[in-house]
Amino acid sequence: MSMGDPWQTAEIPGPKKALVMTKPEIVTAMIKRAKRPILIVGHRAAEIDLGEELLIDYLIRFAKKTGIPVVATAHILGEFLKRGFKPAHMPAVNIGSRLADPEWQGLDGKGQYDLVLLVGMQYYFEWLILSSLKHYAPYLKTISLDNVYQPHASWSFPNLSMGKWKEALNVVMQKLEGGT
């Protein structure tokens, strides 16, 4: 399996495919460059165990550090609230369709976003949400933070083991904290 192979074997995209993020620093660079980023978190973030914490806990730290607004999809809202973090809430297809609408003014009414980070949905579900954004939202850059290659994103991690993924996420956090 090469780095640019979709995780689900038959979900072959093309001709335009995500650039593979071989270095996690790309995430922080893209965030720093973005004027209006947004993070969308699917229900699996509360199921994925990174070892010392669940993915959702990492994402809360990430959101607090970056100040990026978070949209929780499906039923993961309750998991955020239990942890004392209040994200916006919207079903995945609702936020997807709004992001694909150039007229949408965002959660705060201040305009459409320019960078979308996605993580934690079923692979195929996220694959299609990203597809809609690739085709209909040329004003957006998209990043998949999952440990599987999402070809419809602008940028995606390659297929990574849990260990490698955790390392990558830690590097992202370190960079956000100003570490080297």
Binding site: G14, P15, K16, G96, A100, L128, I129, K134, H135
Partner: peptide, 24 residues
């Protein structure tokens, strides 16, 4: 309103194709 989530980026239904429809 229809919210499209293309399952395939190309059309391959005729011999003009495959046609790349990326980005509408």
């Amino acid at each position: 309103k229809p919210y499209y989530l293309p399952f395939c980026d190309v059309c391959c239904l005729c011999t003009f194709g495959k046609c790349d429809l990326t980005g509408n």
